[in-house]
Design a protein around this nucleic acid. Structure first.
Lengths: 331, 331
DNA sequence: ATGTTTCGTGCAACCGGTTGCAGTCCGCTC
DNA sequence: GAGCGGACTGCAACCGGTTGCACGAAACAT
């Protein structure tokens, strides 16, 4: 069907190896010959078959990117950052969505392993043990989980959570709820740990929860009856869902309850009240992860794992406000 | 490094071809032998190398999915639908984002062509001519563009636009603006054509525009000064951006201007006012597209292209309301 | 003129599988 | 007991490239 290297060889009267070299090591072939080969290739519409090349070189020039939920805008931006950056390095990024299912996550990694040079694993739900085992199959960079001996891209979400809670405290809040994320999420644990370490507050942890709008919506009753005035949610989607649910229950945000999200997705800027949130540098994380992964891929076995930590920052909008004491008895 | 078919052959004392058959045509090999091979494979952690298999069979069991903007929730849901459905058919879907750039789109298709059995091209920005040329390299299903002789998945956006404008008209609107989408978008043209065909309205088409929140935001002034009372936007992101911009300009939605979006993304439900929109069945489109593509892939050259048209429906929320005459002179 | 590089190209094995063909062994039929 | 067919399995070519090695010719040194 499509032209192969042998067609080109025949058409230009040289051996296949010369054609091969014309593309993968041009400096080794005579300028004149090269031009002849290139002309023939152009003529036949020949393009090297990457899969076949991968078979011998062991390099596919593809990267895999695994996320829990492609519909989560946080991941969309990470993906965009990774794809755009990889393209400048002549790599392609294949994205796969696990639907928050660790089982699917494991299968996907195994399937991808042979088809890519390395995998970007974002916010994994798998256990460390399984990840370490899978690592024998393919180089990894793990985003949003600290793993000894592996390259990591982390966002300083602990500090973000501290900042968020500090903000609530400065507004007078003391009884604060933390909506945890999914089980197995490193980020969720970081946030929880950071929150626990803040002195002088009365913290209620609710969860684990599904990190989606629905997850947040479902928590509205629990939050309303938890006797808290401030809430920090695992991510913006949950925060938005929560605000929606609270509003339906007649609980005013921020007048009765202040809500802080994490991620800084667009929806948080257009929802009302506008969401106070901890901004996460998703695109930068994607780019950084690609860099670390290519470093790993290039160096082979000898690579030393690297750790990148990206800063987060609090963006104060309208979903947080000062505590109003005795509110419930007001008119 | 990883175990190959030859390692397994050696370990189980049979020829490689027997190992191969154990996996790709189990009924051809003796139960006893098969078990021995399977045990050895299990033992060595052997998994067939898909790329190598693809070389001889010509089937990679991968599909490519190309979208203009992975961060657009409409596409996220389409992707999820496609990936989940493909997985049930033992196929994997690789997603790539073109960033709305036709050049990148073309390159991506060419790169993917050899690594997948077929491509799902969603809302292409390329010209028909180029697509028809690329089609020689790899089977296509085109989503959101009608192309003769190719399999298509369309959403009945024309009827959706008619319904949306009918809704505005029933609220008393006559002077209506249409915010067009990007150049090269079939959907945008469909909407425009449908809008033009509605009798008795005074239509202003603005565009082409970038189909993002920013694109909508940037149009606020143009809309405010266009002397219209109703707006239909190419998609929800633009509609949301527009509402944001109008609000900043002090123009009330829906009191002064009614806004309708298209897609029904989550952000439209949480933004205030809640967005009236034409719901597009994104997930179903993803599933359907995979079905049509696998049909095409299975049948080879002989395949007859199929056309699937999915219904849309209007969801009325709070961003549309009755025209208020003489509003601007009211207090 | 001879020896030594350097350059350019061809040869052939190899990557990890698949598959048409042929051969062996076995039981069964007539 | 020869002939036949079916069930397994091995052999080897092949998919589309890459690459170490060898070889011939030209360029350079001596």
């Amino acid at each position: 069907m499509a032209a192969t290297i042998r067609d080109v060889a025949q058409a230009s009267g040289v051996h296949v190896s010369t054609v091969s070299r014309t593309f993968s090591a041009p400096h080794l072939v005579n300028t004149e010959t090269r031009n002849r080969v290139l002309a023939a290739a152009e003529d036949l519409g020949y393009r090297p078959n990457r899969a076949a090349r991968a078979l011998t070189t062991g390099r596919t020039h593809n990267l895999g990117l695994i996320v829990a939920d492609i519909a989560n805008p946080f991941f969309s931006h990470l993906i965009k950052g990774a794809q755009a950056h990889a393209r400048t390095r002549d790599y392609h990024v294949f994205v796969a969505d696990t639907d928050e299912d660790p089982q699917v996550e494991e299968e996907l990694i195994q399937t991808l392993a042979k088809q890519v040079d390395g995998v970007l694993l974002c916010s994994p739900r798998l256990s460390n043990r399984v990840i370490e085992k899978l690592r024998e199959d393919v180089p990894f960079v793990v985003v949003n989980r600290r793993m000894k001996g592996m390259s990591n891209v982390l966002m300083d979400v602990g500090s973000g959570a501290r900042e968020a809670i500090g903000h609530l405290v400065s507004l007078g809040h003391r009884r604060i709820a933390l909506l945890a994320g999914p089980a197995g999420s490193w980020t969720s644990r970081e946030i929880t740990d950071a929150a626990h370490a803040v002195p002088g507050i009365d913290l209620t942890v609710i969860g684990p929860n599904s990190p989606t709008e629905h997850g947040g919506l479902a928590l509205a009753e629990a939050v309303a009856s938890a006797d808290v005035t401030g809430v920090l949610a695992y991510n913006d989607l949950m925060a938005i869902g929560l605000v929606e649910g609270l509003t339906e229950l007649g609980v005013e945000v921020p007048d009765q309850v202040s809500v802080v999200g994490i991620d800084d997705i667009v929806a948080g800027r257009v929802s009302r009240p506008k969401l106070t949130t901890v901004a996460m540098p998703a695109e930068a994380a994607g780019r950084t992860a690609v860099d670390l992964l290519l470093q790993l891929v290039g160096a082979g076995e000898t690579a030393t794992p690297a750790l990148a930590t990206l800063a987060t920052n609090l963006i104060i909008r309208d979903s947080t406000g000062p505590v109003r004491h005795g509110l419930r008895t007001d008119p």
